[in-house]
Design a protein around this nucleic acid. Structure first.
Lengths: 220, 220
DNA sequence: GCAACGCTTCGGTGGCGCGCGAAGCATCCC
DNA sequence: GGGATGCTTCGCGCGCCACCGAAGCGTTGC
């Protein structure tokens, strides 16, 4: 346990993991920028984390694409962030970058930020989802709503499962799990959101403004 | 995030956290033994973790009782352990202590080890619980079963919620969440299990042997 | 009041590991 | 082939932090 935690505990490596948190695969050089270290330093970190099973590599020509090894790793990061967010309300200068991230971003494979929380709130208000301390549950009307929206999930999971995930900017819950991912994927398909230059931050399109208002009942 | 992870990343601190993982409150000196460091070193670690919000202290006379600050911290540790267990099948000498832990132990507030996995398996076989990738669900027959067993859970959670938790010795799932905790508490009440001298390890009583066989249908 | 005990604070020491420069190995493009 | 690019390995320096000995503070018990 200490070994894994120590890997996450280094600032450079934590930056790398945060960058990969949304599930994308990035090259070693890109990640060295994210971590603000030289490529050779980043290379060492990446090797360690790969060895430990946190990351996997995909060789493609002269590039090496790194990404999180499994959703389990993402969930671990999520839970660490949850604890970190709950703990110390400490001062932290806020960059323009961060402001954009607060509005809408992806969190592994689902929405987070104001957008993610708004969706979770809307679904709760409409009684499509019931959130409890340990997780969430989709009601019958919720299933119908998702079908209407066109969001589909893999059949392998016996029931559409719905987890919640503490939002570190909003300090409130947003939806993750199969349901959160399905909604997110569908919104991309519908052209309601698209990625910004910084690929974790999302832009809500005019079509999205309209769609969220009509389907979920909130403006953002 | 890096800060929290770095705290867990130190071997001595990781030992302390592991010892507290089952939710008990222990004194600083006891924990210094667990961490195999001198009391003054442990004191420093405990102060840091308390400051960071991982632990809380309870002063009682000249003792100070430390325990995990919240279930969220326990869940974080659980997810780190899950990743660590999934990763590298590396050699590790096995102590007699560890062998006992493999049979039955507590994991925060629910059963783990062979016992925990057996219970989860039995409930799945009997269709009392349905496990999926992200978690678990209690069926109607499961609710009846729990009532019959005498396991009760707080009314505040809207539905009896059931999570799973990857067992690091068995590499399979056992039950956690409200349901896992309720079953565990009930088995203690019934005198089916009791704590050993090492308080994380559990001993299954003859009455327990009989009870698990009759109610769950497995021998252990 | 004095001694024992539990725990913490302080200072000094040692070692692990992060970081970068330099060099080496692949791959791609012309 | 030659050069550029992406990435890695090697070696070294330096800073941070865990660790312990010693001392200080509060509580308990006789």
């Amino acid at each position: 346990m200490a070994e894994i935690a120590a890997l996450v505990g280094d600032p450079a490596r934590a930056n790398i993991l945060s960058t990969l948190f949304d599930g994308r695969a990035l090259t070693a050089t890109e990640l060295s920028f994210a971590a603000r270290v030289t490529p050779q330093t980043a290379s060492g970190h990446l090797a360690k984390m790969t060895q430990a099973g946190l990351l996997t590599v995909l060789k493609q020509g002269r590039h090496r694409y790194y990404r999180l090894a499994s959703p389990m790793v993402a969930q671990m990061l999520e839970s660490i962030i949850a604890v970190a967010a709950a703990a110390p309300p400490r001062y932290r200068p806020r960059t323009a970058q961060e402001v954009r991230l607060r509005v809408a971003r992806t969190c592994y494979d689902h929405f987070a930020g104001k957008l993610g929380v708004s969706i979770a709130d809307a679904l709760c208000d409409l009684k499509h989802v019931i959130l409890s301390d340990d997780g969430g549950e989709v009601t019958e009307s919720g299933l119908a709503f998702l079908k209407e929206l066109g969001a589909s999930f893999p059949a392998q999971t016996r029931r559409p499962f719905c987890r919640h995930c503490l939002d570190w900017t909003e300090r409130r819950f947003h939806l993750s799990g199969v349901v959160g991912a399905a909604i997110t994927a569908r919104c991309f398909d519908l052209g309601w959101v698209r990625r910004e230059r910084n690929p974790r931050a999302l832009q809500i399109t005019p079509k999205g403004q309209e769609g969220f208002r009509r389907s979920f009942g909130f403006s953002i």
